[in-house]
């Protein structure tokens, strides 16, 4: 299983991760190793087998669209790096 330098940088970019120059080779090697093993699912006898996305037969749960007010703003905002009044502050977007 070959993974190219361009490919790993593309994937890291999709995941919003920067890889250090000195990490790239080891990420490639490990990913190749793991994908080489993971590739065995392609030899599994799965023809005409349905997919399973979860192990229980959960069905969608609906509830009334009612507003519940969470008043403890302080405990939410205590984790904010920067805030203004009761808002998370971020750099200018536009």
């Amino acid at each position: 299983m070959q993974v190219s330098r361009e490919e790993i940088l593309h994937i890291a970019n999709l995941a919003y991760l920067n890889l250090e120059e000195n990490e790239i080779d080891s990420y490639i090697l490990h990913l190749q190793d793991i994908l080489g093993f993971a590739n065995r699912v392609n030899n599994a006898p799965v023809e005409n087998i349905d997919i399973t996305i979860g192990s229980n037969e959960a069905t969608n749960v609906f509830r009334k669209d009612e507003i519940k007010v969470f008043e403890d703003y302080e405990s939410l905002l205590q984790n904010a790096v920067t805030r203004e009044q009761n808002m998370f502050k971020i750099p200018k977007v536009l």
Binding site: A38, V41, N42, A44, P45, V46, I49, D50, I51, T52, I53, S55
Partner: peptide
């Protein structure tokens, strides 16, 4: 998708 099929198996 293959992994999800193996899950069924």
């Amino acid at each position: 998708k293959k992994a999800q099929q193996v899950r069924t198996l």
